[in-house]
Amino acid sequence: MDSLVVLVLCLSCLLLLSLWRQSSGRGKLPPGPTPLPVIGNILQIGIKDISKSLTNLSKVYGPVFTLYFGLKPIVVLHGYEAVKEALIDLGEEFSGRGIFPLAERANRGFGIVFSNGKKWKEIRRFSLMTLRNFGMGKRSIEDRVQEEARCLVEELRKTKASPCDPTFILGCAPCNVICSIIFHKRFDYKDQQFLNLMEKLNENIKILSSPWIQICNNFSPIIDYFPGTHNKLLKNVAFMKSYILEKVKEHQESMDMNNPQDFIDCFLMKMEKEKHNQPSEFTIESLENTAVDLFGAGTETTSTTLRYALLLLLKHPEVTAKVQEEIERVIGRNRSPCMQDRSHMPYTDAVVHEVQRYIDLLPTSLPHAVTCDIKFRNYLIPKGTTILISLTSVLHDNKEFPNPEMFDPHHFLDEGGNFKKSKYFMPFSAGKRICVGEALAGMELFLFLTSILQNFNLKSLVDPKNLDTTPVVNGFASVPPFYQLCFIPV
């Protein structure tokens, strides 16, 4: 009986604490739906499609509103004006990374994606500088992407125009580009180590996009005490870190300090320079996690976009025909596509942009946080508050993009057929937390897609009208449904 009384008292205290925290903070924060004790607004949000729920709530509470995930307040920004004001106009104040408990377990605050403060700034600055020195957006990395595009075309030829699921092959190409940047090595598509790495990356994007992960991140005790797919994700990350550590040891034994070959060499050189400046942010643990982040951000996002792009091109054969006509006119058949071609191919450029806009790969991006107490639109948001960005509300804005739910390359073309930029184009987020590999991803999408369409016609196994382009999961990332196609050599 005594234990029951204690339990009831504990629960009562928890409920009172929950109510007090919510009521004391709500006077400062933007308005929002009334949260339930302990669980907050979790029942009012469709976990399978958070973005749709945010759109519905914005119609009631406006472009800036507050939700509670458990006891934790989260300020939501919906629509271009609110997102721009926060991420661009007040970029420094909104540059923090929001709480992501599962990532905390995986990387302990290291790396480039989930770190904060001085650690994040130094690692991000170093990573950007190193990638630029190796030619991100310049010639040397373009050579690597072109080489991988040629290998991709050869792998597709091996399908002999038979029906195939493109998931694996389209994942190999961007993964190999990242391998060449980090390890100075590309792998054969049949290499077992490479296959294991690909498998872990593919599993992780599916797990991260599941409703279960949303629950884990908002009720963090689940991570330590409950079984579930989150444990598989943590094991996959541990596998990748151990693999990278092996490569780091190989580099330490063979590195030429006067001739760095890749990202690992550059990081080890930085560690050597910083060894007298303790404590340094440049450690082996930081290198492991930064490399894992580059793999995660640079492989599955690009391969998922490529997979979605081919599905949309199957669905819209008239678009595919126009792209192939432009390829034939500008590039021809006797040389590989290059980035200089893009400025002469406005329709193809528009298609690449429209694919990214339409699929809305990361509907709410990753959570941000404010780095200080900030007054925002007459609300006071306390330091450390998590900020949720609705990228969907920007990419699918119906004023900027008429009929935003329709796939239409003319969203990025003017009346004369010239490519038209849009400030609403934010597939990689915006501001200080914009994806480090934005330029690389854009290069890969253009070169891989043009190389495929230069060499193959795409054949659907069903009537294009019957192809479903609805994402199968739409949590962290929008993942396309399973499909097969035939690559018919031109």
Score class of each variant (00 low, 15 high):
289 N>A: 15
164 C>A: 03
94 F>W: 06
480 P>S: 02
327 I>H: 02
136 M>P: 10
107 N>V: 08
356 Q>T: 09
235 K>C: 05
61 Y>L: 02
214 Q>F: 11
343 S>V: 14
123 I>K: 05
105 R>C: 07
326 E>R: 02
453 L>N: 02
463 D>Y: 03
377 R>F: 04
89 D>P: 09
469 T>D: 08
378 N>E: 12
65 F>V: 03
303 S>M: 04
148 E>K: 01
283 T>F: 06
471 P>I: 03
351 V>I: 03
371 T>H: 08
386 T>R: 08
262 D>P: 04
475 G>M: 07
361 L>F: 09
192 Q>L: 08
123 I>N: 14
162 S>D: 09
13 C>L: 14
314 L>N: 02
454 Q>D: 01
348 T>I: 05
408 D>Q: 04
216 C>M: 15
335 R>Q: 08
183 F>N: 03
262 D>Y: 02
111 G>T: 03
335 R>S: 07
6 V>W: 13
79 G>C: 03
158 K>Q: 12
40 G>C: 01
397 D>F: 05
267 F>N: 02
209 S>T: 14
476 F>V: 15
123 I>H: 12
475 G>R: 08
373 D>A: 04
83 V>I: 15
445 L>W: 01
63 P>A: 07
76 V>K: 00
311 L>Y: 04
67 L>T: 05
202 N>S: 14
406 M>V: 14
344 H>Y: 09
193 Q>M: 13
107 N>L: 07
311 L>K: 01
426 M>G: 05
399 K>W: 08
468 D>H: 06
188 D>A: 07
131 L>F: 11
36 L>M: 11
83 V>A: 11
64 V>S: 05
220 S>G: 12
321 A>N: 14
354 E>L: 01
435 C>A: 00
399 K>Y: 10
391 L>S: 08
365 S>M: 12
425 F>V: 05
144 R>D: 04
438 E>V: 10
55 T>R: 13
430 A>V: 13
379 Y>L: 06
426 M>H: 09
236 N>G: 03
217 N>H: 15
434 I>P: 08
390 S>H: 13
56 N>I: 09
90 L>K: 15
297 A>D: 00
132 R>Y: 04
280 S>Q: 12
96 G>R: 06
205 I>G: 03
281 E>C: 09
202 N>G: 09
381 I>Y: 00
295 F>E: 01
285 E>F: 04
323 V>C: 13
450 T>A: 13
29 L>R: 04
127 S>E: 04
54 L>H: 05
55 T>G: 12
324 Q>G: 06
346 P>G: 06
426 M>S: 07
144 R>S: 08
220 S>Y: 13
466 N>I: 13
50 I>H: 09
447 L>G: 02
363 P>S: 06
223 I>E: 09
343 S>L: 12
90 L>R: 15
348 T>E: 00
456 F>I: 00
125 R>S: 07
284 I>W: 09
108 R>K: 11
90 L>P: 06
54 L>I: 15
29 L>E: 02
21 R>V: 13
25 G>R: 11
111 G>S: 11
86 A>L: 05
97 R>A: 06
128 L>G: 13
344 H>T: 12
9 L>K: 13
462 V>Y: 04
123 I>A: 15
90 L>H: 15
78 H>G: 07
79 G>T: 06
163 P>H: 03
107 N>T: 15
75 V>F: 02
273 K>N: 11
432 K>Y: 07
183 F>G: 03
120 W>R: 07
208 L>Y: 08
285 E>H: 07
351 V>D: 01
330 V>P: 00
221 P>M: 12
94 F>G: 06
30 P>R: 01
469 T>K: 02
71 L>S: 14
451 S>E: 04
225 Y>G: 07
204 N>H: 06
189 Y>R: 01
490 V>Y: 09
217 N>Y: 15
300 E>W: 15
468 D>R: 07
361 L>Y: 03
28 K>P: 10
366 L>I: 11
284 I>D: 05
141 I>K: 00
272 E>A: 12
405 E>K: 09
468 D>L: 07
77 L>M: 12
133 N>S: 11
40 G>Y: 03
266 C>V: 09
170 L>T: 03
266 C>Q: 10
252 Q>I: 08
15 L>G: 13
126 F>H: 11
316 H>Q: 07
165 D>T: 01
432 K>L: 09
159 T>G: 04
433 R>C: 01
40 G>A: 02
294 L>M: 10
103 A>V: 10
137 G>H: 08
184 H>D: 15
480 P>G: 03
273 K>G: 10
433 R>V: 00
433 R>D: 00
389 I>A: 12
405 E>G: 11
487 F>E: 00
21 R>H: 14
